[in-house]
Design a protein around this nucleic acid. Sequence first.
DNA 1: TGATCTAAATGACGATCGTTATTATAATTG
DNA 2: CAATTATAATAACGATCGTCATTTAGATCA
Lengths: 183, 183
Amino acid sequence: MRVSKEQAAKNRERILDAASLLMRERGISGMGVDALADAAGMTHGSMYSQFGSKERLVEEAVAHAIAAKGREAPDGFALGDYVSQYLSAGHRDKPGSGCPFAALCCEMPRQSGGVRERFTAGVRSMIGLLGGRMASTLKPRQREEKALAMAASLVGALVLARAVNDPKLSGDILRATRNTLAD
Amino acid sequence: MRVSKEQAAKNRERILDAASLLMRERGISGMGVDALADAAGMTHGSMYSQFGSKERLVEEAVAHAIAAKGREAPDGFALGDYVSQYLSAGHRDKPGSGCPFAALCCEMPRQSGGVRERFTAGVRSMIGLLGGRMASTLKPRQREEKALAMAASLVGALVLARAVNDPKLSGDILRATRNTLAD
DNA sequence: TGATCTAAATGACGATCGTTATTATAATTG
DNA sequence: CAATTATAATAACGATCGTCATTTAGATCA
């Protein structure tokens, strides 16, 4: 059956919301089309009416997750707050609503060009965000270098803290990286 | 048919070699049992004779990859050399023979307890390796904290450099992290 | 209002997933 | 040497994978 344009747009949004959550929790290859349809409260058929293939759906879902995450940051935030929130136990334990880069980075080398482009653009904007919040006493080149290294530290610490089985070690990784980035 | 104990051990080793390579290239969930049997030059049946399940095979393959990687490091190596090799384009472009932590970290939260334990033990020993090579002027606690943060930086930079689609950005991430860790 | 269009649902497709039972074969053991 | 044991190969299992053709029904448009 056919639905109104608005309804169709809402359904599309609902699919993207479910996909951006599910892919961060289970991985891209671990997110089945049927499971996604279930999570979105629809059938797999309607998803193919909207997106045509899983690959194109993933493309949009990655962009969707990154854009939503970018919208979370308040206008004037302090870099220290950003870091301590990023490297918190709360963030570690909620990958589904957390940083898309940390959740999806390891699968990216095996994704299509379109998916990787969206991901790369997102990484670039995160680095720009970090660099823009750094002490203005530094030269632009230095700020960019620090921002690049900081992004790597953030993602690496979060990913390792999630991977590791021991809560103590996991917390230590977060804390040590927090302290090191504070210098 | 039955083969000699030595032959069976060799076959087992061959499967583990192929698995530790394949899982780093395609991911754990992306490594099918059939594909692995092909890569090892055997049939899937013999793998189940040896390991019983994919989960137990992955357990051993993770430990195998970590142990083999640990054996690579020469006895008396400089920390700076380790870092620049880890953050090199060569390492980035050869995940199959590269760092198992960077290759598998994002899938770890969804692995069995046994697999995660091997991974965690490996991470711990890597951190110990890094800390042991640090300036002895630092207190043990400071060395451990620096080693924890360094491991996060290394893994994060490598993983992001692999994920990103743009060679320029990828190289910048590696270089910036190298420079930052040199301080 | 009547014709057209399209999102959503249904059901099935071949391929691949991990797994298992069975069989063949040869090393090992008594 | 005979009996036992264990590895490897074969073939098939049900489940799930992504995909697609068809049908249904209601919104959109002339």
